[in-house]
Nucleic acid binder design. Structure first.
Lengths: 275, 275
DNA sequence: TTGCTCCTCACGTCACGTGAGGTGGC
DNA sequence: TTGCTCCTCACGTCACGTGAGGTGGC
């Protein structure tokens, strides 16, 4: 088994701090080869060095310790590479979001005035839809919706239903206020057969809405939410119930985000605007 | 002052969770416009919405709350933009380091064997140097050294000293093992006048070293450290004292990292190799 | 009145870093 | 013997999230 190294020597050789090494021992990520029964001193083998070097690099890439463990314990090269690639893809996704946020921040700071909006008052429903629902964290909304609409479009074809409106989503209050809550994706339909789970036939009730259209990337949609919310708050006409988004022009229509159109519907108790 | 909004409405309009809003109140980042004396209910103004929207974007970019406060409280547009630009530059730097780490990880995983090294045993010093020292966190080593060598090169010219060796650095044990400790940057010199603070004239004592040369990017230097440390540990010849790096070919010589050469000197108590 | 909104603690999360206080080893 | 290395708690950090338990408002 060769030379055993003290934690200090091992630290200098791997660039992992002594505290980090003790932590990795505690959580079982990198247990020392041997522990002196008398003194409790940790001893590491030279053969553990490459593992430690890989751990340091993976942690530097922000990979959570639990995933590092998966990589380290991977039974073969393919499994290991798959875990690493998955993490690198996630990092790419974050980078995309960062770029979008920078753009959105610039726009917010450059334009001094909030967007001018036209508020429309409208009664909707009851409406027949094909729907999927889930309770998810706010961060997963994008990915979940993208997948849901793929499934719903397939179900629309399979049931022979005729589409009667754009893709839409209902956001519960908790999802917006607490980072976790219910979301429902729907496609309004006419006629058609019974869908297979997880898709369901859902009849949306009659609701009265204040409606505004957001033009451009959904990364900036909070600005239109704020403008619409301001109008609702000033007139004190807000009621409970999920907020609805209708994706009139979305990613499936055009990749050019500047052309996207999203209708935001905020539940209110009167459909006639106050003077 | 216009309509006051409940925390829930404000949350829906800004996409900040209620918990986050309470937290930003607590830390003084975004205090509500008004607090009901009876109920403790927070009330926000519509005018606070754009600030909240900027906060959300800045936090999404990973800007620490204390810095967000600086941006929000910036007295003018220039100060605000400077703070944001500084953060974006830091993010760029992180991205560069991420790319380097990915490359280094690939190399580590692709090459199954640790690098072959030639260990040289050598006595060094006493050596006259122009030096700068500091106690810094490990993460700052790169930036600190880059600046220090600029200062030291200037001092070499100003004092009329003749360079007698490559840029070098001494790393204390704590700096490597604990993420914070002393570092010394030196340029060996002959003759020359007195340097001005913070540069000092430093006579490095006589030390015996085991020496190995690392070829390539310093991002992979831990592998040569490990190989050298293994030899020192196997022969049980290690002694205390800082580890030294000599930048024989570094960034100032060529931008092509593959051509870089770094000498690593590990203090030992014998300069003649064991049989 | 019911159910919803909002409140304040108190504690948890993640990956260690920071001491404190003490012991083994050359 | 001195000074260095190593040990184990216990607590701190950062930016909130997660309940618990309770109250105001329509």
């Amino acid at each position: 088994m060769g030379t055993l190294l003290s934690i200090g020597d091992f630290s200098r050789m791997t660039f992992l701090s002594v505290k980090a090494l003790r932590h990795y021992h505690e959580v079982g990520l990198l247990p020392p080869a041997e522990i002196d029964a008398d003194t409790g001193y940790r001893r590491y083998e030279v053969a553990q060095v490459p593992t430690a070097q890989a751990i340091r690099r993976l942690r530097e890439l922000g990979m959570p310790v639990d995933e590092v463990r998966v990589v380290i314990d991977a039974p073969d090269v393919d499994a290991r590479n798959a875990a690493i690639s998955a993490h690198l893809r996630r990092m790419e996704g974050e980078l995309d979001r960062t770029r979008a946020t920078v753009k959105s921040l610039r726009m917010l700071l450059d334009e001094s005035a909030p967007p001018a909006i036209v508020v429309d008052y409208r009664a909707a429903g009851p409406t027949e839809t094909l729907a999927m629902r889930a309770a998810i964290p706010h961060a997963d909304v994008f990915d979940w919706l993208a997948e849901a609409f793929v499934t719903l479009r397939l179900a629309t074809e399979e049931t022979g239903a005729a589409r009667a409106g754009a893709d839409a989503a209902l956001f519960s209050g908790e999802l917006l206020e607490e980072e976790f809550g219910e979301i429902v994706a729907v496609i309004p339909v006419k006629a058609g057969g019974r869908p297979a789970a997880p898709v369901e036939l859902l009849r949306l009730p009659h609701v009265e809405y204040a409606v505004a259209v957001h033009a451009g990337s959904v990364d900036d949609i909070d600005r239109t939410y704020a403008a619409l919310g301001t109008v609702v708050a000033e007139r004190a006409i807000g009621v409970q119930g999920p907020i609805r988004e209708d994706y009139l022009v979305g990613t499936s229509e055009t990749a050019d985000e500047a052309q996207h159109l999203t209708e935001i519907s905020w539940p209110v108790f009167q459909t006639t605007p106050a003077a």
